[in-house]
Structure formats: C-alpha cells, structure tokens
Design a protein around this nucleic acid. Sequence first.
DNA 1: GTGAAAGCGCTAACAG
DNA 2: CTGTTAGCGCTTTCAC
Lengths: 346, 346
Amino acid sequence: MPSLRDVAERAQVAISTVSAALNGTRPVAAGTKRRIEQAAAELGYRPNLLARGLQSKRTRILALLYPAPRSGFGLTEMQFATGAAEAARELGHHLLLSPEHADPIEELRHLTGLGLVDGVLLMEVGLDDERAAFLTAAGVPFSMIGRTRDPGSIDYADIDFAATARDAVAHVAALGHRELAFFNLSSGAYADGYGPAVRAGEEFAAAARAAGIGYVDGHRPGSAEEGREAFERLMEAHPDVTALAVMDDHAAVGVIAAVAARGWRIPDDLTLLLVLSSARVAEMFHPRLTTLEPPGTELGRLGARMLIDRLCGDGPPQQRLVPCRLVAGDSSAPPRTTGREGRRRA
Amino acid sequence: MPSLRDVAERAQVAISTVSAALNGTRPVAAGTKRRIEQAAAELGYRPNLLARGLQSKRTRILALLYPAPRSGFGLTEMQFATGAAEAARELGHHLLLSPEHADPIEELRHLTGLGLVDGVLLMEVGLDDERAAFLTAAGVPFSMIGRTRDPGSIDYADIDFAATARDAVAHVAALGHRELAFFNLSSGAYADGYGPAVRAGEEFAAAARAAGIGYVDGHRPGSAEEGREAFERLMEAHPDVTALAVMDDHAAVGVIAAVAARGWRIPDDLTLLLVLSSARVAEMFHPRLTTLEPPGTELGRLGARMLIDRLCGDGPPQQRLVPCRLVAGDSSAPPRTTGREGRRRA
DNA sequence: GTGAAAGCGCTAACAG
DNA sequence: CTGTTAGCGCTTTCAC
C-alpha cells in the first residue's frame, strides 16, 4: 500500500503538501495540485484510516448496537442495520455491527473506550433506556432508532405512532367500520416499558376516539395460540367488532385460524390489519393482509444520518417521526352486516 | 481517555514495560506487573485500537460484504451477519457491515486499501464469483459463506445440500411417499449460476434417485401466482405426486392456495416441505409447514471463525458444510391413497 | 505556497 | 527483567 510519502516522492513535494492538496486543508498551487493528484492516482494511493484517525481523533466509524435477536425479531430490525449501513457509506462513514450481550453498559464502556468509533446508534430503545443515560453521561455522541420516554435533546428517528394509528383508523372507518379492536404486543415478549407497545396502544385508542368509532383493547397475544384465544374471547365479549388491528405476526396467524374455525372469512366477516409487520410477511398470508409497514430502512438511514450530522457540526437536535406505510391487501373490506352468516352482497 | 503513558507514570515504569505487561509480549516481574495492572484498572485504561493497529498492521476488524437486499432476502441473510458479528466478538474482533453497490470490485479495492480491515467475509457467493477471484489475486484474507464452483483452498462454510436433500427425501419416504416433486428457486430472482439453486436442484434429484423414489422437477416458480400455476401444471402432468418440496416462500403461498382451490387439504392430500426457509416463516403458514431451515447463524459464525483462524496462523483450508435442520411441522403426513377425494383414514 | 518537524498511542527492536 | 528509541501514516503548527 502506497503511503503519503510515496506520493510525495513521486510528485517531488513535501508530505504535508500532499496531505493539504488531497484534503483541501490549505491552498495549493494549481500545478502542484495536479501533479500530486496524478501521482496519487498512478500509485493507487488510499489514505490509511488508522493513521488519519489516530491523529484526527475521528475514525468515521459508527457502531450499531445490535441486541441479541429474540422472538419477534425480523426484517424490520435487519432494515435498521442495512439502512444505517447504507446511509453511513453514502456519507463516507463505516458501520460496525456490535452485538449486545449480558451487560450492555459494560460493553458500551469498552466499545467507546477503544477509540474505534466516533458515535453510537442505539436500536430497540426502551422507555427508560440505561444505555442512553450512560452515553449522555459519558459524552459519547449517539442517536436512537426509537426513543426514550423523555428524549430531551437526543437525536432520534422513530415511528410516528399517532399518524400510523390515524391512518389505520381512517382506513377502516372509510370502509364503514364502527367497531375496532386492537391486539397489542405480548407483555411477555417485550418488557412492559417497550416503546412501540406502549405508544401504539395509546395512539390507537386516541385515534379511534377522535374518529368517533368504538374501540376495544386489552388483549396482548404473543403467539398463534394466544391469538386464537384472544379472538374468541373478543367475539364473545364484543360481537359487534368488525375490524381488528394486530401487532404480532404470530398472533395474526391464530386470529386467522379462529376466524376460519367459526366459518368466517377474511375480509368478508372480519377486516384484519397487521401493524408493524413488513409487507413481505403479509404476503405470506392468504389472503394477503393489509399491513402498516414500519419504515425500517428509512429509520436506519435517518438514525445514521443524524448521528453523522451531530459529529460534523452541532445544530439543534433532530427528532424525526416517520409513519408506517399502509399497504392495502385483501384483508380489508366493508363490515359484515349480519352476525354469523357473513356479509350480504348487493 | 488515559493512554499507556498515563499508566506508566502512575506505575512508575517505562511505557514499553506497561505494554509488555498488559499484552504478555515478554516476561515482566510479578510485582511490577501487579502494580501496572492496578494502575491500569484505577485509570480505566483501554488500549487505543487505532494506535495499536497502525503499528501492528492488524486491526482485528473484519468486513462483511452485504449485498443490497433483494427480493427473497430474509432472516437467513441477517443471521449470517449477526452470527458473524457474535463469533467475531467472542474472538476479540469487530465486524464491519459493508453494503455492496454497483461495482463490488471497485468498492472492495477501496475498502481493503483503507487499511481498516484485516479480512473480508463474502456472502451470497456466486458459482463464478469475481469478488473471490479479486481477493485471491490481491492477497487479501477472506472466507466465504457459500462457495464458488471450485473453491480450491479458500475457506468456506456452506449449506450441505446433499445431506439436506437426503434428510428431506428420507422424511417423505419414511411417511410412505413414492413420488416427490421439487420446485426450485426462480431463475428470475437469482442468476442461473446461483449456487443454492443449482446445488439443491442436483442434490434433490440425486437423493430421490438413491432412495428409489419417483422425482419431478423443472418448475421454478418465484411468486405466489407462479407457484399456483406450477402446482396445477404439476398435478396435470404428474397426478401421482404426493409430496412437494418448495424452495421459494412465495411460491409456497401459491401452492397452498392451489391445493385449497382443488378442495384438497394439507397434509392429507399433499405433503409440503419448505426448503431453505426459516422456521419463523414456516410458522406464518397454516398449517405450520415442515421446514428445512438453513443454519444461518451457524454459517455466519463459522465464516467469521475460519477467517480469524486464517488471520492468526495458517493451517489447512477449512471447508465446512452444514445441513439444514428439518423442523417437522403439520404439513407432512402419509400420502393420500386415492386420487381426488383425499386420504382415507383407518 | 511550500517544507520541516512534532506527535497522535502504540509496538518492537535493541541496549543495559 | 526493564528502559530507551525508532517508527507505523497521517495531520498540523510553524517557519521560510
């Protein structure tokens, strides 16, 4: 690998001049600059990032803290990573994929102490996330995909649950539904403080209220079996519900089975929405479910970009909310008009 | 951040002694060593990886080349990344997630020229992969998840398609099936030289032959619609087929629809196997499909580990094949005994 | 405009 | 066993 010195020798100038010419750090005569650039090109010179980083205290490397995959982990989480990696790349940075284990704080202390990364990207952020508190205290630049309860001036990109809920409610309301039920994420799979579960729950309730349509929640099925049970209990207690929004993929499988078991069909007898699941998963269902697809790639990109912005200069905190995209499938239709016999057609 | 010098001052020894004590590079008196370790601990000293890398020419950073996600991309690819990142971490290394774009070779040249990474991990390896050729020529250490047509002495971890096919065939044969069909990956979604498609195709044929059961292939549906059509054509041409192995998730959706359309049920009238799809996807189906689940995490781990082995010392090339895990679902059963009316029960 | 020189934090000879 | 010294490749004063 050729170094600055090799370029300097070939161009017959001093090392510092080469550095200046290549980085534009200070004015260099046009002719000299051309000579240097040519020499660099001929030698295939690439700046050594380690040397540069050692000197400048900036490595242009970001770390994405990647929690150990748990149930419910899927495409969206992977999109965070790929989106962040792409955005980083476009902005001349690199992305380290840093798996988290038993003691996130200790690992964070270690990682940031290495001098290897300029900043950290947090995902799967809890409402009271200790990592965020630690990084703030340690003065390490970071941004979040998701957000804590009170993000203060921390940069973050999160799902706009209010808009998502509004869109979902508007979608079913437009079809004529007057009674909507909501199955939240299981309290088992996620700690109770898990942001998406809390926020989605609140916002769906608010959106339904604002739209003046009936609303039932309280169920939190986390598996197909629980989904089946939840749906049966729902129909017992609230037979007038005609539309259902489900957060958990597996629960949706159970709901579909339960619907079939009572001789009903989707969408004729029940409008089913899958919330926070990717369209790719929705396509696995038959009929294809209407989905509120989380903007995973976009959030990853935003998270990386705002972190890089922060590293470069400091502006005001960037806090972005992006709604899920409603992808209409074949699981939404006007409400059934009778009880058990299915919807009458005109 | 405290440096070696700070530790040296506090312990009243020379910098090089601290380095030696902390790295075990050369013998250090027990007492001195203890003093040094204590000083380091008190200061919270962390070695600066940049400085170390600059000097030692080893950064302990690996790059995983991550192709732009395309259709058919899923959990398995993510598992490569998380598995590799975890294994790297356990072995004291870091993993850079490096997205690939238009010109993989140029990007590879760039990445390796930066001096940032010690080695490269390739995934989605083609039978004639130009990246492998480039890295070999450039003398950059690398390993592959997947493999080229002729891997020579390159380290790789790949799926054991022969064992996978054998297991799948044995599974259906044990249930009593005598006629198996195989739907390969679409030639559209993947270039014709895509290893898994080619190898799985060959090995399923071989396994069926070896087991002495009838075998039909040639279909390559890449979507639900194509899956539906393929199944109908299959049943027309080969009405005696009772078991079907499908490589593409979406095609499986179509097959299931087609099965239902002709009034059949799974598994009573057709045993359906999903090959190379994660159990998580299989659970989305109803009934839950029997799956041959690719060892994504394992392959990622192996890939990282063999690369690190290669970087440390050089032994013989490591070439590992890992079979898919057969996860029995509710889509396999003994063959139907009659044509259209479904299986008679005893 | 350009060059010489110091030094980022570390490792690895080489003396002692 | 321990200290001194010389860089790794780069950025950055500071003279000229």
